[in-house]
């Protein structure tokens, strides 16, 4: 089973590489690799350290439900805000294309963020996110504190 998966996956990877090399010139292939590499570097050296730092700050600033609510807001709002960077910045905006990027994105984000903050507070009060709230150990109760 494992060998079959590795073999099938390797063939698919090879096909993808062949497709890229056979349809794009060297400059285009180089740019493709550059974008993929830059995405990895930006993720590993910038995004994750920032998220870890935010998590650390949240933990340092309090405990219990407020921390739980902040964590919920971070997980729910962070990725969607990142995915919406192209519309916030207006990448691709063109006066000749009036039906592209035609919403008020600041307002939209504000409405979404408000909803997520309210939802984060409600989730923190529920038993959905925390073993402590559920009364179990759930990878959440510190044995050293028992």
């Amino acid at each position: 089973m494992r060998a079959a998966l590795v073999a099938v996956g390797t063939i698919a990877m090879g096909y993808g590489g062949w497709l890229l090399l056979s349809t794009q010139n060297l400059t285009q292939v180089g740019q493709t690799a550059l974008w993929a590499g830059a995405a990895v570097v930006a993720h590993d050296l910038l995004l994750v350290p920032v998220v870890l730092m935010l998590g650390w700050l949240v933990r340092r600033s309090g405990s219990g439900r407020p921390v739980l609510a902040a964590a919920a807001v971070l997980v729910l709002l962070g990725p969607v805000s990142l995915a919406a960077v192209p519309v916030f910045v207006g990448l691709g905006a063109d006066p000749d294309m009036p039906t592209l990027l035609s919403r008020d994105y600041l307002l939209g984000w504000g409405v979404l963020a408000s909803g997520i903050v309210l939802a984060g507070g409600a989730l923190a009060r529920s038993r959905i996110l925390s073993g402590e709230e559920r009364g179990g150990s759930a990878g959440g109760t510190d044995p050293r504190g028992r």
Partner: peptide, 28 residues
């Protein structure tokens, strides 16, 4: 989705080719 193409490669062809690579690497 926002029709922003700040590169020289063909979006359609590169996205398709790298899609095969991503799926293959995932299976591996």
């Amino acid at each position: 989705v926002t029709q922003w193409y700040p590169w020289e490669f063909s979006f359609r062809r590169a996205h398709y080719a790298v899609g095969w690579t991503a799926m293959g690497a995932l299976v591996v």
